[in-house]
Design a protein around this nucleic acid. Structure first.
Lengths: 115, 115
DNA sequence: TTGATGGTTTGATGAACGTCAAAATAACCG
DNA sequence: CGGTTATTTTGACGTTCATCAAACCATCAA
């Protein structure tokens, strides 16, 4: 998977809004453009970034280009994100450590673990 | 939550590696630096970006600054990411699309909302 | 073919980014 | 105090990024 491309694609708020928009169905480039105050050229650039991350599909219908989410990679992306983020939270919950919400600024937290 | 800061923080591979490193325990800035071929100054900049995203905790121990994951926001971040990515995939699976990949993130990801 | 419509590509520009080297800050120890 | 260690901050530099305007390509309708 194109990990770096995915994260880079997500780093821009406009691109995240595009993805959110397409969650409720595919839209043409022009229809998408109606939701944004930027030029179609800029939007087209964002489409390219999202396509490079394999998050977007495009299909020509007449004069229009219709964009939709590439759902086949969405599970891979979700799994990757969980690998980065869910691990600690799960371990937290699993270890049943009472209320780790606040760190004890006391003497010393766990000492370094250097292999 | 600082959505934009979080995504920006994740857009750099070095910062993602820092997060991964800290998944196995807290480390001092110097210990983290041993794993990267860049200057400590550059690394310190990355720490700041991760702190701005509220992903990192820092605590002074003697002359060292010890960094650790801020686990309290990790569930929020995971939920946010799932909102962006898991929706379509879930709908896919629910509608009986074949081949549900091996995603199953360990302990069933109970979709909990903000406590 | 011509004209109109829907999008993309190109070139330019200012802002943001990642990096380094060097200076600055902070804590310890003699 | 002065010196050493650990880390951050600053300032500069080259690169990447988001954006626009304008040129360009593709499709449809006369």
């Amino acid at each position: 998977m194109r990990t770096q491309e995915v994260f880079k694609a997500l780093s821009d708020p406009t691109r995240r809004r595009i993805l959110k928009l397409l969650q409720s169905g595919s839209l043409s480039a022009g229809e998408i453009a109606e939701h944004f105050p930027i030029t179609k050229g800029s939007l087209s650039h964002h489409f390219n970034v999202l396509k490079a991350a394999d998050l977007l599909r495009v299909e020509r219908r007449g004069q229009s280009l219709v964009y939709s989410l590439n759902t086949t990679v969405f599970e891979d992306v979700a799994a990757m994100l969980l690998e980065l983020f869910a691990t600690e939270a799960s371990r937290d919950r699993a270890s049943g450590a009472g209320s780790p919400r606040t760190v004890e600024p006391g003497p010393s937290p766990e000492r370094r673990r250097k292999p």
